[in-house]
């Protein structure tokens, strides 16, 4: 039996997930497109006044990011569950923690990272004040991984359910509330030229907390749903 180090296992799973994703490019781009379209709907619904839009811009961007992440979560474990490779991972000698961590990292690279890259353009469309851009970037950088981690728990719990999509949103959205509150408040505070280190520190705490705890929960959930 060949013995893989944890690092090798992690790299292998990550590379595999990324390769699969790049073969289905449209599936990867759809959540991003959804994010952009949802953000553009708000000015059309609310009106083009610059100060109104600037005031609600952090909320719009973050709520749209939550929804876009939700949209992509459904297929996090679905394909692996359908073709049986998920069970192979569960019975392999490598710890489940590494697998789930690698899969969640891949998910973040494919959905969270593109969101961060397009967010400044959308922020410009919503007249976000200039001093808030760094806060927007930092909160998205620390916050979107938390979305992936917590969302993965929901995805793992609903992977065995036939029509799990809506159920997944029901389960996961209430758990996203703290991230949303602290992220938008950090951006608001930044727009007033006040320090927002406190909010950022709490988001970082949420990030490290979910980094250490969520893979265990995902592992337990996967064991239950694959039975």
């Amino acid at each position: 039996m060949s013995s893989l180090s944890y690092r090798q296992t992690f790299a292998l799973v990550l590379k595999r997930d990324l390769t699969i994703a790049f073969r289905h490019k449209d599936e990867m781009l759809n959540p991003l497109l959804f994010f952009i379209i949802v953000v553009t709907l708000f000015p059309l619904g609310i009106g083009p006044q610059a100060n109104t839009l600037a005031k609600i811009a952090p909320g719009i961007i973050w709520v749209s990011a939550l929804l876009a992440t939700l949209l992509s979560l459904d297929r996090l474990f679905k394909a692996d569950h359908n073709d049986g490779s998920l069970e192979q991972m569960l019975i392999s000698p490598q710890p489940l923690f590494i697998f789930t961590l690698a899969k969640i990292t891949a998910h973040w690279l494919l959905t969270g990272l593109p969101l961060i890259l397009v967010a400044p353009i959308l922020a410009a469309l919503l007249y976000l004040p200039e001093q808030s851009y760094s806060a927007l970037f930092l909160t998205l950088l620390l916050g979107t991984p938390v979305l992936s981690f917590i969302g993965a728990i929901g995805a793992a719990l609903t992977v065995g359910v036939k029509k799990g999509g809506v159920l997944l949103s029901l389960i996961v959205l209430p758990l996203y509330i703290p991230v949303l509150i602290f992220a938008t408040s950090a951006i608001d505070t930044a727009s007033l030229n006040l320090p927002y280190n406190g909010q950022l520190a709490i988001i970082a705490a949420l990030f490290f907390g979910s980094l250490t705890l969520a893979p265990f929960a995902v592992g337990a959930a996967l064991k239950v749903s694959t039975n």
Binding site: I171, A217, N227
Partner: peptide, 26 residues
């Protein structure tokens, strides 16, 4: 969310465990 997850499974043993994990995360 816990109730919806519990109802989504046909196998009640599985449903109980899944809902339990969600309750703990909650």
């Amino acid at each position: 969310g816990v109730i919806a997850l519990h109802n989504a499974f046909d196998d009640k043993q599985m449903a109980g465990k899944a809902a339990g994990i969600l309750a703990l995360v909650g």
